[in-house]
Design a protein around this nucleic acid. Structure first.
Lengths: 153, 153
DNA sequence: GCCTTGTTGCGAACTGCTCGCATCTAGGCT
DNA sequence: AGCCTAGATGCGAGCAGTTCGCAACAAGGC
């Protein structure tokens, strides 16, 4: 079972939190369990929903605050996926995203796909791209095939 | 004077608008003049301000609606520059942007900088990147030099 | 000039997120 | 076990950016 690994990791983060003068609360525990359990990208709202299944009193603003805190600790990061809400995920599993502007589907790509661009931009402009913070918009295979009416501007 | 050229281009768009069953209104005229006159990237609010200098009654929502309309006509596009408001500009002058997450400065780069990435992603995933719709975040030369406290998360 | 229909001004609504504040509680100290 | 204090929470209000509904308005074909 990877569950043990999971709770070990959760404990780990909670310990780090405590060492930094933070406290271990139910909201934090549940949020971390969610994050380590299911991984993937989830919006703050989705995470709040999942946490609220087990502790309905946890407020969305608490989720945001805790995600912020965890981001400061380097445990999670968020990426902006197109026009909608941001997606949060474990920092260690971060990777660039392609998101289709028409159907909304996302494709996870390995870091190395951006390697060339990052090198070029660093060389030419001294600019260090943050490859995970934003999604790369465009049209997926299916949606660039049919030139039909766009699903959204 | 490039003014002649400008008003010619404005007339052109207005004619196209009319041909599509649209009407030429003061708000549209002024907005187009702003866009063709100064170019660059400007937020809806900035454009509204500029238009309102000459016609104070023009409402921000009218600016949004007209920018939408002009986008549908292919005259303007918008890009999302980091966390703030969107930047609108003439479609013909669109180009990718690098924006520094720390100091907010932006660097305009030529399309060809993204050429390699676009080719790779098209080949590997059949995904057609829209290179202008989102800014590429990271750290500019100055801000990646000093590793100091980030100006924002 | 008239009429039709696209456009406008206005404010209210909406989304995604942040803040202020009174209350609560984790957890170190005893 | 109980106390205390500072961090965390719940809640609602607030905010930025944008969209919407609607009655009033006006462009431009007739």
């Amino acid at each position: 079972m990877p569950g043990d690994d999971r709770s070990e990791r959760v404990e780990d983060v909670l310990a780090r939190l405590r060492r930094n003068g933070g406290r271990v609360t139910k909201a934090r525990q549940l949020l971390l369990e969610e994050l380590f359990d299911r991984g993937g990208h989830r919006t703050a709202e989705e995470l709040a929903g999942a946490v609220q299944d087990r502790a309905p009193e946890v407020h969305l603003s608490t989720i945001y605050r805790n995600l912020d805190e965890l981001e400061r600790l380097g445990v999670v990061t968020h990426s902006h996926m197109g026009h909608g809400p941001a997606a949060y995920h474990l920092a260690e599993t971060a990777h660039p995203h392609l998101v289709c502007e028409r159907c909304g589907s996302t494709i996870d790509v390995p870091d190395e796909v951006l390697g060339g661009l990052m090198a070029t931009v660093r060389r030419r402009y001294g600019f260090a791209i943050d490859p995970h913070h934003f999604a790369i918009p465009g049209r997926c295979r299916a949606c660039s095939g049919d030139a039909g009416a766009p699903a959204r501007g």
